[in-house]
Every structure is written in structure tokens, then in C-alpha cells.
Design a protein around this nucleic acid. Structure first.
Length: 638
RNA sequence: GCUACCGUGGCUCAGAUGGUAGAGCAGCUGAUUCGUAAUUAGCAGGUCGUCGGUUCGAGUCCGAUCGGUAGCUCCA
């Protein structure tokens, strides 16, 4: 007797030894049975061909996220089938579904390239069209090993040997067989549309000591429309790529002469950075921070004390010799801030301290990980270190969190996801009771914030718990920008203290925090978020004045003077070109406002303002200046 | 760092099977003074990333190196 509960709470008792598919057909409906790709029984996914069992069941259809995962996973098998048919010497390894599709890793004497895609896709289409059923078979490990060794599938054997169960499940479709937990589609025909995307190297089991395999990336969707939408989104991301826009808008540069991962800010990028930094400084003063400046290098003793030479050496550059003494370029600012702390004895009455610095650090990143502005070797952190008592921790964290959200909002990021990372299982410093108190403080802050947050249990750094903030950009991608980290380690290592109310020495709590992260990376994210069309307050040029003919230059200069006085970033274009030509150029530069000055504007009573996108509005000069000032985020930061 | 791919004038790109570099845009000079996304004529600009090799001859083949892209890995 099976007792089955449906999602609507209905109980069905059945004593038939039938498959889920038959059960669904009879008890729920033939229509649903047609689009059923799996069954969730007590939150475990199984094939629809599996026999019924007792529990809470839910039909998984193509449309659900789980359903799409199954489609993609099955498509991965189909791809592996196609590839091994076309290239028989190929060994299969693993092929899971991922967020945007699926991949399969192969070990093959054949060098895959995009030119193989068509052949593979054609073969896959054949397999799909044949509606070949997926069949599950549970066998003993020995049996499975025998099967795969006959086939020469050594990777599969390695996987089976590590499975701690007496049996394993195999999935067949046609002549293809793969070790797999499942579930899979009823048959290959359920894959509606797919596309091979790229080929890349990937280590066997993700370990760089192992052999490099060839990974074929692909994706599958339930409709052509979904696929097209996905491809469009990929296209859109390409269009927005900050490396492409950075070149087009002349915002930054890398040079072989200077070195990998080292950014040159051009005059245009320099303006944006200046605005960001000036805004940042002003807001920090307003929020109770004091700005400090520290050097780029420090003696090895400092890095020994801080522990960086023990734990972070791979990230640091080789030392330079100064008068026979080793100095290191800083990968972090904290030790310098701590040395500033140590210059005096502090009283609890003076707490908290909030010391901020736009500190430029240098970190060794493997060459393959470098990526435009997003991953560089020299960058400026918008760093700050707070020193406070345990009693002040919650209030300080709340303050930082609010400040962080305010800053992100100022740059047009309005959707956040927060993560609380807590004490790791092992390898952590400090007392458990201190950790607990700190974690409580962080959690209380998050709860009060009313923001969406999640717990990443055990994901904290060894030195303390932290809160990370992810923002969503204009095309839905997530970026981690802010991080707020409590540190129990460095105060200990540097023997920091303050005099408490009781006249005794106590250890202060230290908080590291960065709101924008790195200025370089943040700039990259901003470029992509705005697609290079910066809001007025950040735009390198805010207003372009275009003269129709030479006799209008004087008008332009008069206007320029007025704008400059008000701190508006303005450029005159008095070249001997047709007006359409100039408009095209400044439009492509994504300048927020273009003003065409001709005979009609000679008196400057009214000026015609062309907005980005082509809309034209007539303004009085003062009115327009006022408008720009309003758009300057409450101040001129340049 | 590893694997694959890529590297031609400021930018975007052409240059089958090796025979000694080409376009558009940008730049410069001239004509044009023309009102909301490219006026026109001419000129100039490249030791084809770099170094080495094969060859009578290499942008084209081979090796090394530098740089880039995708992914893997890393990110106390």
C-alpha cells in the first residue's frame, strides 16, 4: 500500500505497482503526464519511469527550474553521445547542468574548436529527433566498473571507486551509457532547443595538478524564444563590456610597457574617478570618518607581525632592498592603520575611531585571472578601519551598513543582497564566546535593516565574521561591492589596547570595511551598469556646445564662461564641420547634453538642449544651469 | 600559472595554397560656413607584438617570448 500526498494536500492510497507516469496519468491528468519530466518525492527528484512510493509528491514539469535543469543535464548526455559518436577516441568525464546551461568535459586526442559545433549539433539534433528513451539501471559497483573498463572510460571508473554505496545508477539512451544519479527526461525528444557556445580548458576535478580536459559549454531551453532571449542577454553584456566601452569612450588604458593588470586612467576616466573620490571623501567626513594617508611600502617586520608573510605571501610581490632591509609593497592597508593606532594610549572615551583611506595596494594575481578593471594587480581600496569596544560593535556595524547602502544608492544601485558569514568549523582565531557576541551583533543589525539577507554558515574568514553586500546591475548581474569584516586577529597580533572605564587595558574590536570595494573594479561595474552613459554628475563632459558656423563661436564662448563659473564640465566644438557630424560624434561620446548654437541663439534668451536620445527642450540659460546643478547629486565634485 | 584561441597603421577590419602589405574611420592640408547622428578633394601614416629558426623568399610555416580573450584554478 502506497500513501501519496499531492501538493494540494490530497491523499491518494494506491496498491498498484506502477510507474509514476502511469500514476500521474490516472490520478492527475494525461495533460500533466505529457509535460512531466520528473517527480519530486519527499524533496528527492526521481524519473517518471520509477515505481511509485509513499510520500509527498510533486510533478516536475519542463517549465519549472528543476525541470529545466533536468533538460540541460539530459542534453549534456546527448552532447556526450554525439561527441563520442563523431570522435570515438574521446573519453567522457562529467557533464552537469549549470546556471546558464550545461557543459561536458572530455579527454580527447581531437582538439575541439567552434568549427566542430555544427557537426556536433547536427548529431545531437538527430538523437533528439529519434525520441530515444532514457533508461535507468541500478547495478553493483563491480558491474559498473567492468562495463566502463571495457569501454576504456577510465574517468568513470575513478568516479565509481569513490562512491560509498554498494550500487550505482547508470543511464542509457540508445547505445550511450553514463554513470549518473539522474533523474533524466523520459526521452531525448524533450529537449526542445539547444546550442553549443564555447570550448575551454578545465582541469579534471578542478585540480590544476590533474590533466587539462576540454570543456564544451552549451545551453538548452524549452523554447526558441527563451534561447534567443538568453543569447540577447549575452549579446547585451558584450555590448556593455567595460573593456570595449573603455576604449570607445577613452576612459582607461593598459599598456604592455607598464605591465599586466596595472591601470592607466585617461583624462576622461580621471574626471570620473575624481568625482567619485571627492564625493566619497565628503560623505565620509559627513559620516564621522577621518581621512588618513599611509605609504605604499613597509618593512618586512610589519608584515611578519601582521601575519601577511605567513598567510598571504602568494599575494605579495617580492621585497625590495632598501639599505639592506626588506620592504614590501602593501597588499592591504590595515597594518599601517594599526601602526597609527598604536602611536598613543587611547581611552574608551575616545572611541570609536573611523579611519578611512583611499589606499592603493598591490597584489599578485595569476595572469590568467586578470580581467580588465575587474581584476587587476594594483588598485585603490576605499578602505576604512574602525576601532571600538564590543559594546559599540552593533551600533557601528549598523552605521556602516546604512552608510554602505547610502553610497551604493548614490551610484544608482538600488537592489541589494546581504550575506552574513560566520565562524568556520576549524582554523579560526579568538574565543568562541567573542565570536558569538560579534555574530549576534551582526545578525541583529541585519534583522533591523529590513534588507534581504542570507546566512553563509562557516564562511567567515579565520579572523572574524563578516557581512558582504551584493548589488544587482541594470541587466540583472550581481556584483559584490561592499564588505564589512570584524577582525579579532590583528588587534591581538599587534597587541592593541585601550583603557576602559575600569582603568584596565582592554583589547579593541577592529572592523575592516570597503564600500565600493576597489575604485578600479567599481569603475568597471559602473561603466557596464550605465553602458557608458554616465549620469550627469559623473559624466566626463556634461555639456557640449556645438557651433553651426564660425560666427557663432563667440556665443559658445559666452555660454562656456557661464557654465564654467558654475562648475559645469563643458566643451566647445567649433570645428568646421556640419552640425549633423558634430552631433553624431558627441552622441557617440554619450555626453548628456548637446547644445546647438546658431543665429537663433545669438541673444542667448533661450537655448535648445538636446538630451541623450535626441529629445530637444528649450531652456533659459539660468534654468538650465539650475537643472544641471540639481543633477549633480547635491554638489560639484570637481 | 594551466589549456585553447587571438595579436596587421590611433580604431575597426581585408590580406586562398609562403613571393616582399590594403580598406573604412580617425589625423593633417585645402575647398565648403552648411541648423539636430557622417560635406568634399588631396596628403601622410605600418620593420604585420617581439626575438629566433625553416626557406632563394614569411604577415603567411616552426619555436620561444610578451600581451589579449574564454575557461579552469586562486582570492588568508
Amino acid at each position: 500500500m502506497f500513501e501519496i500526498t499531492l501538493p494540494d494536500g490530497k491523499h491518494i492510497d494506491s496498491n498498484l505497482n506502477e510507474s509514476w507516469l502511469d500514476f500521474i496519468k490516472r490520478e492527475i491528468g494525461a495533460g500533466l503526464a505529457k509535460s512531466a519530466v520528473a517527480v519530486s518525492i519527499n524533496d528527492r527528484l526521481v524519473d517518471v519511469s520509477e515505481p511509485v512510493q509513499s510520500g509527498e509528491m510533486k510533478v516536475v514539469t519542463l517549465k519549472s527550474p528543476e525541470g529545466l535543469n533536468i533538460v540541460r543535464h539530459s542534453a549534456a548526455h546527448i552532447m556526450a553521445d554525439a561527441v563520442t559518436q563523431i570522435f570515438p577516441d574521446t573519453k567522457v568525464t562529467i557533464g552537469p547542468s549549470i546556471e546558464t546551461g550545461f557543459y561536458y568535459d572530455f579527454d580527447s586526442p581531437h582538439r575541439f574548436s567552434e568549427s566542430d559545433f555544427e557537426t556536433i549539433e547536427k548529431k545531437m539534433a538527430e538523437i533528439i529527433k529519434a525520441n530515444i528513451p532514457f533508461k535507468r539501471k541500478v547495478v553493483s559497483k563491480e558491474e559498473a566498473i567492468e562495463l566502463f573498463s571495457k569501454m576504456g572510460e577510465t574517468y568513470k571508473i575513478e568516479l565509481i571507486e569513490e562512491i560509498n554505496e554498494p550500487t550505482v545508477s547508470l543511464y542509457f539512451h540508445g547505445d550511450f551509457v553514463d554513470l549518473c544519479r539522474g533523474p533524466h527526461l523520459p526521452d531525448t525528444g524533450f529537449v526542445k532547443t539547444f546550442k553549443l557556445l564555447s570550448v575551454a580548458g578545465a582541469y579534471w576535478r578542478g585540480d590544476e595538478k590533474n590533466k587539462m580536459l576540454q570543456r564544451l559549454y552549451a545551453t538548452a531551453f524549452n523554447s526558441k524564444n527563451d534561447l534567443e532571449q538568453y543569447l540577447k542577454m549575452v549579446e547585451e553584456a558584450k555590448e556593455r563590456d567595460h573593456r570595449k566601452l573603455g576604449k570607445e569612450l577613452d576612459l582607461f588604458e593598459f599598456s604592455e610597457d607598464i605591465g599586466q593588470g596595472l591601470v592607466l586612467w585617461t583624462p576622461n576616466g580621471g574626471i570620473v574617478r575624481t568625482v567619485i573620490e571627492n564625493f566619497w571623501k565628503k560623505e565620509h567626513y559627513r559620516n564621522g570618518y577621518e581621512l588618513i594617508y599611509t605609504p605604499h611600502i613597509g618593512r618586512s617586520k610589519l608584515w611578519e607581525t601582521s601575519g601577511h608573510l605567513d598567510f598571504y605571501k602568494e599575494g605579495m610581490y617580492s621585497p625590495m632592498d632598501i639599505d639592506g632591509e626588506d620592504y614590501y609593497a602593501k597588499p592591504m592597508n590595515c597594518p599601517f592603520h594599526i601602526v597609527l593606532y598604536k602611536r598613543k594610549k587611547w581611552s574608551y572615551r575616545e572611541f570609536p575611531f573611523r579611519w578611512a583611506e583611499l589606499g592603493t595596494v598591490y597584489r599578485y594575481e595569476k595572469s590568467g585571472t586578470l580581467n580588465g578593471l575587474k581584476r587587476v594587480r594594483g588598485f585603490t581600496q576605499d578602505d576604512a578601519h574602525l576601532f571600538c569596544t564590543m559594546e559599540q560593535l552593533e551600533q557601528e556595524i549598523t552605521r556602516v551598513l546604512n552608510f554602505s547602502i547610502y553610497m551604493l544608492k548614490s551610484f544608482d544601485f538600488s537592489s541589494y543582497k546581504l550575506y552574513l558569514s560566520t565562524r568556520p568549523e576549524s582554523d579560526f582565531v579568538g574565543e568562541v564566546s567573542v565570536w558569538d557576541k560579534a555574530e549576534e551583533a551582526l545578525e541583529a543589525t541585519l534583522k533591523k535593516s529590513g534588507l534581504e539577507w542570507e546566512l553563509n554558515k562557516g564562511d567567515g574568514a579565520f579572523y572574524g565574521p563578516k557581512i558582504d553586500i551584493l548589488v544587482t546591475d541594470s541587466i540583472g548581474r550581481e556584483w559584490q561591492l561592499s564588505t564589512i569584516q570584524v577582525d579579532f586577529n590583528l588587534p591581538e597580533r599587534f597587541d592593541l589596547s585601550y583603557i576602559g572605564e575600569d582603568g584596565q587595558e582592554h583589547r579593541p574590536i577592529m572592523i575592516h570595511r570597503a564600500l565600493l570595494g576597489s575604485i578600479e573594479r567599481f569603475f568597471g561595474v559602473l561603466i557596464e551598469h550605465f553602458k557608458g552613459a554616465f549620469p550627469v554628475w559623473l559624466a566626463p563632459v556634461q555639456v557640449a556646445l556645438l557651433t553651426v558656423a564660425d560666427r557663432h563661436v563667440e556665443t559658445a564662448q559666452k555660454l562656456e564662461k557661464k557654465f564654467l563659473k558654475k562648475g559645469i564640465r563643458v566643451k566647445i566644438d567649433d570645428r568646421n564641420e556640419k552640425i549633423g557630424y558634430k552631433i553624431r560624434e558627441w552622441s557617440m561620446e554619450k555626453v548628456p547634453y548637446i547644445l546647438v548654437l546658431g543665429d537663433a541663439e545669438a541673444s542667448l534668451d533661450k537655448i535648445p538642449v538636446r538630451e541623450r536620445g535626441g529629445k530637444q527642450i528649450s531652456f533659459e540659460v539660468d534654468e538650465f544651469i539650475e537643472k544641471i546643478n540639481n543633477e549633480n547629486s547635491g554638489g560639484v565634485y570637481f
